[in-house]
Design a protein around this nucleic acid. Structure first.
Lengths: 203, 203
DNA sequence: CGGTAAGTACACAAGATGGTGTACATAACA
DNA sequence: TGTTATGTACACCATCTTGTGTACTTACCG
């Protein structure tokens, strides 16, 4: 969804202040949170004059919303579009989050903004539902009996791992992956599936 | 841990400003978040003069820390000390959160404070570990093969449900309870346990 | 060239924030 | 009674917050 860069007419739109702002916001909002990042700091980090920032965005809220909207494609497609993995492996790969993703920004935003009506909170919901949907699709591909349910369950595990990682300051995704393996094996009937085992459960 | 009210000597300690502050903080921090609740508002809601507040607490940080410390006994003992339930039922009862608990305040605090060194963040970690420990104890009682692991897994499910409930604005605890049932049945060897089924899985 | 869109620099507003200082009131207790 | 702990009322401060206003500069493009 990274639009513009060059406008539709081919005209260059200035020196890319907008993108610098969003790029800086991605870093700062993640590192120090949304509420702890002021506009002055954000503009300084983006090397953009404050005036310019407010010419591109009506206010901080809009920057926050746009900051969350950016993730939609990147995070999702990274895992689910890998054709080198079986569907089951893809489901589990969703728990192999690289260290570059310290915490789901949607949970953080939902907590920090604290207003379900905020546009950014809407994006957060949309994203979460999209992830659950993608997981359900993959679950269906893997032959799960109730793919919607499995997708929802795996999404819940991911969120649990994210939240727990944040609170405990220790990686909880391996534990979540272990649970996921159990759920996947339980959800896929014996006849279907790729490499699942029946009674034994990988810890 | 609701100490004082009357001191150990029987002496009345003023008019209970401290408790009013903590009571108001519990409500306000929960309803609107920590960062969105200013000291002026907090003191007004507690019907306490600002000066008094700063005589009881060195600063807002201390109030936040104390606010989190209060939960330790109440939430935990409510579920785990019920002798009318089998251990397995107690494990599942942890997912029957009443509507009075809109969201785990520890996750919210960890996100809002955004500083793992903050005393309140410490309390959050302690609490989370305590819950996992209690779950593990109960899992052991229920005859689980690896009670520590099951306790950690169930704790992760609770956090996932809490986070997801917050972001999606919809109750995710039933789904978490369903997963919990699967994990519990998988973790308890066939010989042990109370009412578990073997192959069938309660959705 | 000149016009225009884009961006800059910087002061400044208006309000909220956490936190103090000062003088006064009240309740308990000896 | 008077002393002391507790609490109040309220002005006040420094700082930070989002957001504007104004005047200037730069890059592009015909």
């Amino acid at each position: 969804m990274t639009e513009l860069e060059k406008g539709p007419t081919g005209r260059r739109r200035g020196r890319g202040a907008r993108e610098r702002i969003l790029s800086a916001s991605e870093q700062l909002f993640r590192e120090q949170g949304i509420n702890r990042t002021g506009m002055n700091e954000l503009c300084a980090s983006a090397e953009v004059s404050k005036r310019t920032a407010y010419q591109h965005f009506t206010g901080k809220d809009e920057i926050v919303a746009e900051y969350l909207r950016q993730f939609d494609p990147s995070v999702l497609s990274g895992v689910f579009d890998r054709t080198d993995l079986t569907p089951r492996e893809r489901l589990l790969a969703a728990f192999d989050i690289p260290p570059t993703t310290p915490l789901c920004p949607y949970i953080a935003a939902a907590v920090e903004l604290h207003d379900p009506q905020h546009p950014a909170s809407q994006y957060a919901r949309d994203y979460k539902k999209a992830v659950a949907g993608r997981l359900a699709d993959t679950a269906r591909e893997a032959g799960a009996a109730d793919p919607e349910q499995l997708g929802e369950q795996l999404a819940l595990l991911i969120d649990g791992a994210a939240a727990r990682t944040r609170v405990l300051n220790a990686d909880a995704f391996p534990a979540a992956a272990a649970i996921a393996a159990v759920l996947i094996d339980n959800a896929i009937p014996a006849t279907a599936g790729d490499d699942r085992r029946r009674e034994e459960v990988s810890s």
